[in-house]
Simulated scan of single mutants.
Amino acid sequence: MSAASVISVLDDDPYVREAINNLLRSRGYMVHTFASAEEFLSSSDSKRTSCIVADMHMPSKTGIDLLTQMRAQGSATPFILITGFPDETLHIRALEAGAICCLRKPFVPADLMKCLQWALAAADDVTE
């Protein structure tokens, strides 16, 4: 993990945002939380994030919508998508859109940390 790793957490559920925030901060990451994709996109933090952890089912713009939009704009920022509504078709769509991992809520913290390690390693490979 790079000391400069900034993780952006997007979820419309404040309890989920806080739980992920607490987990990642306890592991030494800098974390920014957002209640929506629009809030994230309008933030200056959107340009400085090392990885995005986003809910697949947010009002207005879903995590997959955000991932697709950012890829279309040339962003290679790694994505981890999470959902409380497991759907194999959606899971496949997320991976095809470029997500590193898709986790079902509630997930085991170790699974998120493993996905985050993969995501940051993939980001390091892109920048080298």
Rank of each mutant, 00 (worst) to 15 (best):
T89I: 14
G28N: 01
M113S: 07
A121G: 03
M70C: 02
T77F: 10
S26E: 09
D13P: 03
V16R: 02
S8D: 15
A121P: 00
P78H: 01
Q69A: 10
K105H: 00
K61E: 11
A19R: 07
T62Y: 06
K61R: 13
H91D: 12
Y29S: 05
T33V: 15
E96L: 03
Q73T: 11
C115P: 02
T127E: 15
E38F: 02
L112W: 05
R93W: 05
H57S: 11
D12C: 07
L66H: 03
F79L: 00
E39R: 04
A76H: 10
E38M: 09
I82N: 13
V108W: 09
A3C: 07
V16G: 04
H57N: 14
P106N: 05
A119V: 01
T49S: 14
P59V: 08
P106K: 07
Q117P: 00
V53C: 07
G63L: 08
M56W: 07
S43W: 07
K114T: 14
K47W: 14
L81D: 02
L66M: 04
Q117N: 14
S50F: 09
S43R: 05
V126Y: 13
E128T: 12
H57K: 11
K47P: 01
L112V: 07
A72Y: 09
N22H: 13
P86E: 12
F79Y: 09
P14A: 11
C101M: 08
M58S: 07
Q69P: 03
V6H: 14
G28C: 00
V31H: 06
D11L: 04
C101T: 03
A72V: 04
S26N: 06
Q69S: 14
T77M: 08
I20W: 11
M58V: 04
A3W: 09
T89N: 14
A122I: 03
L120W: 10
A123M: 11
V108T: 08
P14L: 13
V126C: 04
D11V: 04
A94E: 05
I52G: 00
E88W: 06
G28F: 01
R17P: 05
F79W: 00
F107D: 04
E88H: 10
T127W: 15
L116W: 10
I100L: 03
A110S: 13
T33K: 09
A37D: 11
L116I: 01
T68V: 14
A119E: 09
A4D: 13
A19I: 08
T89K: 09
N21W: 11
Q69M: 15
D45Y: 15
D124H: 13
T83H: 12
T89P: 00
L66R: 00
S36H: 11
D125Q: 07
K105M: 06
L81K: 02
I82W: 08
A37Y: 10
S44H: 11
N22F: 12
S5D: 15
D12R: 02
S46W: 11
P14Y: 05
M70D: 08
S5V: 01
C51T: 02
Y29Q: 01
D12W: 13
C102V: 15
S26P: 00
A122N: 07
A4M: 07
G63F: 10
T77H: 04
V53Q: 05
V126P: 00
S42N: 14
I100D: 02
A35I: 12
